[in-house]
Design a protein around this nucleic acid. Structure first.
Lengths: 217, 217
DNA sequence: CATGTGAGTAGTGTATACAGTCTACAGTAT
DNA sequence: ATACTGTAGACTGTATACACTACTCACATG
């Protein structure tokens, strides 16, 4: 299986940004990144274009690239967009209502439940990401998928942080995900949108509160 | 003023795709593009990354890049997303309600009116694009702006095509734009969203009908 | 005829070198 | 002390060369 270095590198950098191994607003220098991974600047440049596309870095032409910031203002930007688009995705998924996607949602939910029962936040997070990815697939709209990718990764930083710091969010997320699955499997597009938007709003509020607490510390 | 070739080239290629000088699904070969513009493959590659980000080309790794398709399925993908995001932009613009943005909207609308009065579709189109850009600025949400850029250019192909082929759309667009301006200048966020969504829906229907007519020809 | 294999070529992906821009800092003038 | 200018170095952007992959076509085999 041949690999495109740029794409692989983009994936790694994104993970590092999401999980905080690359700090918000940290400078990314092409040569340094290349040295770290033992590759030349060409695929680094291309990878950084991809990471930029996903909103995780900001480029200032001829001056450099920085990891994008994390904070209340950024959260509000990302979540207002996410509210609009995740609601649309759920609606379109419910309309399409493909059995294989419903099965995949059930599987992801089972994994989330098991992780929750054993108190494993990281596994819960991964299950929840999988659940969200299935909804995006199930919407069968490639343009929407691309847009969701554009903010989904930004949102992941907040989602991970939130689950780790506010465990009641995990319970709320699990319950909301059950509602989404029910609406999608019944083909109820309007309900799917509503419960998705409700869950996003609650997450937004809870993450916002966690950030404000963080800011006060 | 120094220039980044990749960015300039991306702009040119996007214009050519939007106005049909590069046909839907046409193959774009790096070396050929470089020869056309007298530059090397490096900035061509970077430009094509940017154009891909805006949804106007599709890359198949190790195989090449093609202009993205135009058709009913693509229209529906783009417009369902646009409905969600343009509505949000108008809502946020009305909330922000900055006098300089209201003034810019009035100016753009005046230009649209003058163009309409003299039957100049291309100038009308440009005025309408300017109007839309002001709304995006006025929303003061950089993430949303980035997402709208991601589909706005895809939508431009349809918008231009539609105005040229269905003149009643121009009248409808002008009227809808007046409604949006009124709602934004009153700071009525809910109304701004509603009238924007109504206009987008009508455009979607009209463009869809124009495509079906085109398909039958 | 249908299918498989191998060679050649087109074109993408990566490495390296060079040119240009920006930033930081030292030196000089007021 | 402050402001301005010039220089060096860091780093981005572009050009070119090489390596690798995918596709096409000709030929061989069943």
């Amino acid at each position: 299986m041949p690999v495109v270095l740029a794409k692989e590198l983009a994936r790694v950098l994104e993970q590092e940004i999401i999980f905080g191994e690359i700090a918000p607003e940290a400078r990314l220098v092409e040569e340094e990144v290349g040295e770290r991974f033992g590759i030349s600047r060409s695929p680094v440049r291309e990878a950084l274009r991809l990471v930029e596309q996903d909103g995780l870095v900001i480029r200032h032409p001829r001056r450099g690239i920085w990891a994008s910031p994390v904070g209340r203002a950024d959260l509000d930007e990302v979540y207002s967009c996410r509210l609009a688009l995740e609601g649309l995705a759920a609606e379109q998924a419910a309309r399409a209502r493909a059995p294989s996607h419903v099965a995949a949602l059930e599987k992801a939910l089972a994994e989330m439940e098991a992780a929750h029962a054993r108190g494993d936040v990281r596994a819960y997070f991964q299950g929840n990401v999988d659940f969200t990815d299935v909804i995006h697939d199930a919407a069968k709209n490639e343009t929407l998928r691309r847009l969701l990718n554009g903010i989904g990764k930004q949102a992941l930083r907040y989602r991970y942080l939130a689950y780790a710091s506010a465990p009641e969010l995990v319970t709320m997320s699990l319950s909301g995900s059950k509602d989404i699955l029910a609406a999608v499997s019944q083909g109820n597009a309007r309900l799917a949108r509503e419960v998705t938007e409700r869950l996003i709003r609650r997450s937004w509020d809870a993450i916002g509160a966690a950030i404000e607490r963080g800011a006060a510390a």
